[in-house]
């Protein structure tokens, strides 16, 4: 019996969402009176042993040529081997792109019930019940997992990173899986940007910005806040901003600590993707804009006037010249 946490990496570095998953998985292990272990696929530049401070005692590292392609079919087979070898009863993923690709496969392979998009620790007082997000952030469901092995994929920003003391032992895990059928031929990343799903602060703007040429002030504010940028759907549809910035019911769902909505009306489909944000700030010239009903703080006024002042005020408070 143990809790196994999938350590997700990008360009050889452990993702922030993984630190949340490690903290979360370790807490579950403590709750169940067992140990938490990690599994990482491929070579990593970061010091894996230091991940012990998030509560894992051991990390299984699998390096094999078959893992050179990001193929969920292959990853799933390897994870199934590790989980079975160590007798994992709970397996934790981050509910990010890799989690969404791999966790369902593993669930079907191991016949292990999956809760995707978990937002809280499991309630183990009577069975195993996990709270997850449903109806695009408009409600929660408590899902009872009835199988011996359980899989949870944790929503980003839903659980606090808890760092303590400790180092993990790192052990190589040998696999004989063969290469998969998927071959990646090219990839492109906007370098330097904060990925939207992992961002703690998101600055988002809508049609109120009038045109793509006015996004400079939005980006300036995002920069001083170390924030990711997002937008409403019509803005992405009009190609003012790239599609991957579109948040909402039919775009990306996010839950940052702070969401700043500029010139966005707050349609129900937009709110569906952002209403799990901890603090919502709305800047809109229309006092009747529905977004104010979902906001914690707001300013009624012209974005073109307020956003530059906002940036200046943040600089002042952060002591940036």
């Amino acid at each position: 019996m143990s809790v196994l946490i999938f350590i997700d990496t990008t360009d050889g570095h452990v993702k922030k969402a993984t630190l949340e998953a490690l903290s979360y998985g370790s807490k579950i292990a403590a709750q169940m009176g067992t140990v938490a272990e990690g599994v990482v696929l491929g070579n990593v530049q970061d010091d894996l042993a230091s991940l012990g401070k998030y509560g894992v005692t051991k990390i299984h590292q699998v390096t094999a040529d078959a893992l050179s392609q990001p193929d969920a079919q292959v990853y799933c087979k390897v994870l199934a081997e590790v989980a079975t070898a160590i007798g994992a009863t709970v397996i934790v993923f981050s509910n990010n792109l890799n989690g969404k690709a791999i966790a369902p496969r593993l669930s079907a392979r191991l016949k292990a019930g999956l809760v995707s998009g978990a937002v809280a620790l499991p309630d183990t007082s009577n069975g195993f019940v996990v709270k997850k997000n449903v109806f695009s952030g408009k409600a929660f469901a408590n899902i009872s997992v009835t199988t011996a092995v359980k899989i949870i994929s944790l929503n980003p920003n839903a659980y606090q990173v808890i760092a303590g003391e400790g180092t993990a032992t790192v052990a190589a895990f040998a696999t004989s899986v063969s290469a998969g059928a998927i071959k990646v031929t090219s990839s492109s990343k906007a370098s330097g940007d904060v990925p939207l799903t992992e961002a703690e602060v998101v600055v988002s703007a809508g049609r109120g910005m009038k045109g793509p040429e006015n996004w400079g002030m939005v980006e300036d504010l995002a920069k001083v806040l170390h924030a990711a940028t997002a937008c409403s759907r019509p803005v992405a549809d009009a190609h003012w901003r790239p599609h991957h910035e579109h948040v909402g019911q039919t775009g990306i769902a996010i839950a940052p600590n702070l969401y700043i909505a500029i010139g966005i009306s707050g349609a129900i489909q937009h709110l569906a993707g952002v209403n799990r944000s901890k603090v919502i700030v709305v800047i809109n010239k229309d006092p009747e804009a529905p977004f104010f009903k979902a906001a914690d703080y707001g300013i009624v006024g012209d974005a073109f006037d307020i956003v530059p002042k906002f940036t200046a005020a943040v600089k002042k408070i952060k002591g940036i010249a």
Partner: peptide, 24 residues
């Protein structure tokens, strides 16, 4: 492999705190 035990609605927001446009 799973069953829905129940649903919950998120707690209602306390209401927006408005700040004057002159006082960013």
């Amino acid at each position: 492999l799973t069953a829905v035990a129940g649903f919950e609605l998120p707690p209602a927001k306390a209401g927006v705190k408005l700040v004057d446009a002159e006082n960013v």
